[in-house]
């Protein structure tokens, strides 16, 4: 009897510490990734990386100014598509939606969120690249924009729902119409949360490579306007990493570090600073 109890207690202790190691291991992976990229990328990064164009194969040095600007342009285009649809759709779900149709929208949004990014790339290719007959920043931005919609929409909905009911009732009691209530009271109260959602979805699509491979394609020079192929950081990381040149590998690490820092910073800042105390009492 005593032995049985000891065994059970021992097993409990053993399994529970095992779960602790699982958690610890998962967390250590992040620090490993971070450390490895900082060490390798930090060695390769310099001022020229941010200011110069890529050098031709064989010459060392050069930078990725065009890819950094290209990523920025693509994200701008993506927000033009993702933010309005995501935001207003979220307002509909939280404020106006009936039962059946809202469920349908919500469910579809979740499914769209799970569609592999490469499939979104095919979609943008068939819709924009094929009719135009060439790769363009527009097609890449469209693909990223579609990927932004689900995250923005669902988080907007969640943050709007979190606004306390008495606030709405107060506005309505003062004679405001439903829309005025939403516009002047509910949305401002949830504003920081919504901003967080938009930033997080931007951070997610900023690292997407697959949908850009055959929409924005890539470019070793500056790309003017929106109708030409354009370089972007994640695609550069990919093409440079699988190339056979050591100097390109070095640059891939540098570009990877820049990308990681951008994405993680956006995440950390928006999660800790912006979304802290979303409660209405403060804003």
């Amino acid at each position: 009897m005593r032995a049985r109890l000891l065994w059970r207690k021992g097993l409990s202790w053993f399994m529970l510490s095992l779960t602790g190691f699982c958690a610890l291991g998962s967390v250590l992976v992040l620090f490993f990734i971070l450390g490895y990229l900082v060490v390798n990328g930090g060695r390769a990064i310099n001022w020229a990386f941010f200011t110069q164009l890529p050098k031709p194969v064989g010459e060392s040095g050069g930078g990725m100014a065009n890819a950094i600007v290209g990523s920025g342009k693509l994200l701008l285009l993506a927000s033009c598509i993702g933010v309005p649809i995501g935001f207003l759709g979220g307002v509909y779900l939280a404020e106006f939606g009936g039962r059946t149709f809202s469920f349908l929208v919500r469910y579809t949004t979740d499914l769209l969120n799970g569609v592999p990014s490469i499939v979104i790339g095919i979609f943008a290719y068939s819709l924009i690249v094929l009719p135009m007959k060439h790769f363009s920043a527009l097609a890449g931005g469209f693909a990223l924009g579609v990927m932004m919609i689900p995250i923005t929409m669902r988080s907007t909905e969640e943050f709007l729902r979190a606004v306390p009911k008495p606030l709405r009732e107060g506005a309505m009691a003062l004679g405001a119409s439903k829309w005025k209530t939403i516009q002047r009271v509910v949305i401002p109260a949830a504003f920081r949360g919504i901003l967080t959602a938009v930033l997080l979805s931007l951070a997610r699509v900023a690292g997407e490579t697959a949908p850009l491979l055959f929409t924005a394609f890539g470019n070793r020079f500056w790309s003017d306007g929106w109708m030409h192929p354009i370089a972007s950081l994640p695609v550069v990381v990919f093409t440079y990493a699988i190339s056979p040149y050591d100097d390109w590998h070095r640059q891939a690490w540098a570009a990877g570090l820049v990308l990681l820092v951008l994405v993680l910073l956006t995440n950390v800042i928006s999660r800790t600073v912006l979304s802290r105390g979303i409660s209405v009492t403060r804003s």
Partner: peptide, 16 residues
């Protein structure tokens, strides 16, 4: 921290 891990772009996992 673990959710940050989910935010790391997949191409970087490929790089590593």
């Amino acid at each position: 921290v673990i959710e940050l891990l989910a935010a790391v772009p997949s191409v970087l996992y490929g790089l590593l």
